[in-house]
Amino acid sequence: MNLSTDIWVWVGVFLTFCIYSFLYRDNPFYKFGEHLFVGVSNAFTLSFMVHRIIIPILVRPFTEAWRTAGSEGLSAGLFNPYAPSNFLVIIPGVIGCFYFARFIPGLTWLVRIPIALFMGYYVGRSVPAYLEGSVFPQMRGTMLTQASFDPAQGGILGGIFALLVLVGVIGTLTYFFFSKEHKGVVKWGAQTGIVFVMVGFGASFGFTVMARVSLAIGRFIFILRDALGIVT
């Protein structure tokens, strides 16, 4: 045994046990660990946002543009959104400030403006991106071609595998078809689909559990090696 002399290692061990104590029941140690975790995370996020987002992306470009305008006068370059210093950053800045309007009773409705812009932009952007990046490539990969039976791609066995993928995709799409009751042919298609879905879940479950176990092993190694020096 070779006990660590680093105080922060023992702080880490203490906090690890605080969180693991939840396995027994809720207790003051868990509450302490939980509140510390939440507090430190929020402080880190706030600091990150101020120093990495608000100052370099909003405050600095605006103040530099202000300084340039003072020394050289107003120019079109100061309204170029791609320029490192420009006045246009004030527009998203003001819209972002509308989030705080909920603290002013008469102006609460202003909060809907950034929400509408944000949701509209991201939903509009994600639908074509989803089609381009996910739906079309997957459809292309699912279609069976003569090349699927090519000896270089596994021959007959590769072709059968490709056929299984096609059947699985059509079955799964049938399961998630909501406009028909699962009866007759649709029922058979949906049941085939759910078999494929469950096989996929099983594989995913095993894979993810392995990853979680490795995380737990990492914590035990921290205690046994870094703190207690029992293992190397």
Binding site: R140, L144, T145, I170, T174
Partner: peptide, 26 residues
């Protein structure tokens, strides 16, 4: 979804018969 299923089946039949890759359309 119905359209995609139909495209998958039609594309597969077309590709297997003609030897061309119908996926290039996508």
């Amino acid at each position: 979804k119905l359209l995609f299923m139909a495209l998958l089946v039609a594309g597969t039949i077309f590709s297997l018969i003609t030897g061309l890759d119908a996926g290039w359309l996508l």
